[in-house]
Design a binder for these strands. Structure first.
Lengths: 340, 340
DNA sequence: ATGAAAGCGCTAACAT
DNA sequence: ATGTTAGCGCTTTCAT
């Protein structure tokens, strides 16, 4: 039971007094310093518990000049954050990892230039010990600027190589693309098509690269006419699928670069009277909840969203503690359902 | 351009010195205190700008014993947060409003008892100036406990009346239910059915209440056999719709208590060979992105998600500033598409 | 209108 | 192993 009324909340002094030790000793106990006698340790612990003592983060932060907070930054329009469960999945993972290590998670969406300026200012103010960026496009300078302010940065997804690179956590997009191709090939597709993600994201090029590599190795052509750029939305998937269908190109398989795109494509296919997977097999990417509930249930490449969030949070904490962080690539897996 | 390196970041003293005034005056200027000469004000502003000064939140917080942070608490499983864009919509709105007023948003999901304890502790530590709760079930004691710790609380959705009530922001669920009934009736439905939300949420009872009231007034029966409880998920919608369909009850209209439920129901209907809206008209609730992209596009009752988030954030800020907050009910509107 | 000074609650040398 | 003592950077009386 947590009791203190806010204005009477006990301080470390209260605890120390009650335990019959100095404030310094009490502080040591509470921060796990080994150089304290068992007797003192017990007394302090007991006192803290009895008083329901909770350290004041602001005071600690001021003394240590760390904030124990991590920023979760979505560099995307609010609309996309809203529509794509991808973000929620990663967010959830990050939150769990942060909570485990007693860090708070600050949630930020930056869409406007104003938002960006505010984030920089915020980072400059020493309000966060690190920032993880999602959905970074092209060579967005924001992560670099934040990092230059002395704040550790971790990216979701591989940064474009030309840029000073930050540690990142990425699904194995290349292999994911391969898996998608294999699934289509296994279905007997000979005229595959793909709707990619936005051209300025490495997730797009990596997935496409893997997809194409596998097809080529298996001797299957992928002409430009069967490659179109999508935008990771349902609406985009619908429109680009119609475009593909209207182009006169024959096709019998589709790799949609994410599940939302696939769902949109499914609708266009259905409207056109095409059966999935009989006429056109479809493979998505992500494995967000909607994949199971699509019609037909979507065969997709699962990327471990929560694990990505967890990893990023942990890396950031290590970095903030002065440690090193090495980028990791997480395994993806084909989840076979009915669409391919 | 934001420049300071973290360890050399200017403090208020630096600014004051440069402006040729005392720290106190500098502080006054920066916090908008009117009792400063124009000369001093200008000098301080200029100095702050030149130095890219950013106040240290921890120091301010320690001095004022406010945190300038708001907690966004989802009292739900991570899974649901992940699957339902409803949360992301409200979150986005809250974040925007918080940023406008220079507050930070702490994101928290509480699923386990551990999470709950941690949140209480956190609130007791004076880490947040207020907490908004989403998806509160039944008479969950958590908001009350947090409030008792001296932290202002705002709820998304009307609390059950039996409980000490907090200010809340709610869509007009009752009217929403009515609108749904009207849409169905306008389609000529005479044998409507409904899949509600979880029984322990007021959103559920209010929507159902409005739906039923309208039907009754229009002389249309709604027997118990055509009322089933859902869980606000696609899968739940699918299962309960099958259940309804299997029960032998004839029906020609469905009010699904949220869009995810409706999407699941749509699938069950399609599998059963029933046309929407010809055989069964369907109305959802929320108007999340998936509604537009459903097949057929979903007629639904829109609730202003971002506005709810904004309102809650603002109320919390007012409350934290010692003001009052009065609960608000936000308008909902029928968005006619193809499913009804 | 402005400055001096006290203090918010904690951590981290530095002594002992 | 423990206590003493400075701060961390800001706000806010209280004087002037």
């Amino acid at each position: 039971m947590v009791t203190p009324l806010r204005d009477t909340a006990p301080t470390l002094d209260t605890v120390a007094e009650r335990a019959g030790v100095s404030r310094a000793t009490a502080s040591r106990v509470l921060s796990g310093d080994p150089r304290v006698s068992d007797r003192a340790r017990e007394a302090v612990r007991a006192a803290a518990a009895e008083l329901s003592y909770v350290p004041r983060q602001a005071a600690r932060s001021l003394a240590t000049s760390r904030s124990d907070a991590l920023a979760f930054v979505v560099a995307e329009s609010g609309e996309k954050f809203f529509a794509d469960p991808f973000f929620a999945g990663v967010l959830r993972g990050a939150q769990v990892a942060a909570a485990e290590r007693r860090r708070q998670l600050l949630f930020v969406v930056v869409s406007s230039d104003d938002d960006r300026a505010r984030l920089e200012e915020y980072a400059a103010g020493g309000h966060v010990d690190g920032a993880m960026f999602l959905s970074v496009h092209g060579d967005d300078p924001l992560p670099g600027r934040v990092n230059r302010l002395g704040v550790p940065v971790v990216l979701a997804g591989r940064p474009p190589s030309r840029r000073a690179s930050f540690p990142f956590v990425s699904p194995d997009n290349f292999t994911g693309g391969r898996l998608a191709a294999q699934a289509l090939l296994a279905r007997g597709c000979r005229r595959p098509a793909t709707i990619t993600g936005p051209r300025d994201m490495t997730a797009t090029s990596d997935r496409f690269g893997g997809f194409q590599a596998e097809l080529t190795e298996q001797g299957v052509e992928l002409p430009d006419a069967r490659v179109v750029e999508g935008d990771f939305t349902i609406g985009g998937g619908y429109r680009t699928m119609r475009q593909l269908l209207g182009s006169g190109e024959e096709l019998d398989g589709l790799f949609a670069a994410n599940d939302l795109t696939a769902v949109g494509a499914l609708r266009a296919l259905r409207e056109r009277g095409l059966r999935v997977p009989e006429d056109v097999a479809v493979v998505g990417f992500d494995d967000v909840p909607i994949a199971v509930d699509a019609d037909p249930p979507l065969t997709t490449v699962r990327q471990p969203l929560e694990a990505m969030g967890r990893q990023m949070a942990r890396m950031l904490i290590d970095l903030a503690d002065g440690g090193q962080a090495t980028s990791v690539t997480l395994d993806v897996a084909l989840v076979p359902r009915d669409s391919a």
